[in-house]
């Protein structure tokens, strides 16, 4: 072991079970994985989230050894796996297409990895039976997809394994995962719990990708009423006093649709005046778009009551500590 560098520890103090350092995978001039540093902790359910083509599947394939890497190092349990073939990496991978063996029975499909790893015949039968027991949950066919996701979380806690999941579905990512890594264009934009990514995005991209957010560009300005992002058109968006961007710098305010309150009278001097341009009934909430002077794109918001009609003059308010600001042009 002394020949190997000690596995690096992450913020939680546990050694990483999978570690990527400066990993690059390029196809021609395009980097499918662009200098990614990532540490997966033992027994966590980690999700790589990103739009299609962002490189999340390529990272998973690189970890599995199905795709080679062109630069950086990839270690599993402290061992550099550059020259370790897939079948010796002691992993399992579930494909989106499921990739079940069509010429084999259910039993043989489940028994396949046990046979490949030369488990004794008697043990295989018992373990396949256990696997089938898990499947025989009450009314499995009727279960909704969401409930199945919760089932995965429950199973993950029981079976004590590290899971790396790949999805473009942000709700799935937040529900399932201990931590989420957001990918865009081969780069790992941010890693954190779903809640952190949602509440404290490090970039405009992350804010835009998770949930329904209004991203409003301007300059961060101080003042007696607290910091605000002031748009080129002169609209003031009050943001959190937590300092993430220096005063006078170009900044993007991230205003979540569900954090905005709307009234037909100004609630405070800080209220943003506007006019209802669109009203869509969505069931639980009513989706509104409000045009406001000084903001080029309509402000999107979700209202529980939804009694205000299109064309009404409205005032928008929000708790300022819920509005995050990031440096503009940062992703």
């Amino acid at each position: 072991m002394s020949a190997h560098p000690m596995p690096a520890s992450d913020a939680a103090g546990q050694p990483a079970i999978v570690r990527l350092a400066g990993v690059v995978k390029s196809y021609g001039s395009h980097n499918a994985i662009d200098h990614v540093d990532l540490e997966i902790r033992p027994r966590e359910l980690f999700t790589l989230l990103g739009p299609s083509g962002s490189g999340k599947s390529t990272i998973l394939r690189a970890i599995a050894g199905l795709t080679g890497i062109d630069g950086g190092t990839l270690t599993i349990e402290g061992r550099d796996v550059r020259d370790v073939p897939t079948h010796q990496r002691n992993i399992g991978m579930v494909f989106q297409s499921l990739a079940l063996f069509p010429h084999m029975s259910v039993f043989d499909n489940i028994a396949f990895p046990l046979r490949m790893r030369r488990e004794p015949q008697g043990g295989i039968g018992r373990r396949v039976a256990q696997a089938l027991d898990i499947v025989r949950l009450p009314n499995i066919a009727k279960r909704l997809r969401e409930e199945m996701q919760l089932e995965i979380v429950r199973l993950h806690r029981e079976i004590d394994v590290t899971i790396i999941n790949v999805t473009h579905d942000q709700v799935e990512a937040m529900i399932l995962s201990d931590r989420v890594g957001v990918m865009n264009d081969g780069k790992l934009m941010q890693v954190g719990s779903g809640e952190t990514l949602y509440r404290r995005p490090a970039s405009r991209f992350v804010a835009d990708f998770l949930g329904r957010a209004n991203v409003i560009d301007g300059v961060l300005t101080g003042g007696p009423d607290g910091p605000a992002v002031v748009t080129p058109g002169g609209a003031r968006i009050a943001v959190t006093p937590e300092r993430t961007v220096a005063e006078g710098r170009a900044a993007t305010a991230i205003l979540r649709a569900e954090d905005i309150g709307m009234a037909t009278a100004p609630a405070s001097p800080a209220s943003l005046a506007g006019e209802v341009a669109l009203r869509l009934f969505e069931g639980e909430t009513v989706y509104y778009e409000v045009t406001a002077p000084g903001i080029d794109r309509p402000v999107r918001l979700a209202s529980r009551t939804g009694e205000i009609p299109v064309g009404a003059k409205v005032w928008l308010t929000w708790p300022r500590d819920k509005v995050w600001a990031v440096e503009a042009g940062h992703g």
Binding site: N90, F95, A99, F101
Partner: peptide, 15 residues
């Protein structure tokens, strides 16, 4: 034949 079947086999420990 889905090439992912062969990849899946490799991830399941098949040489």
């Amino acid at each position: 034949l889905d090439p992912r079947l062969e990849e899946a086999a490799a991830t399941l420990g098949a040489e």
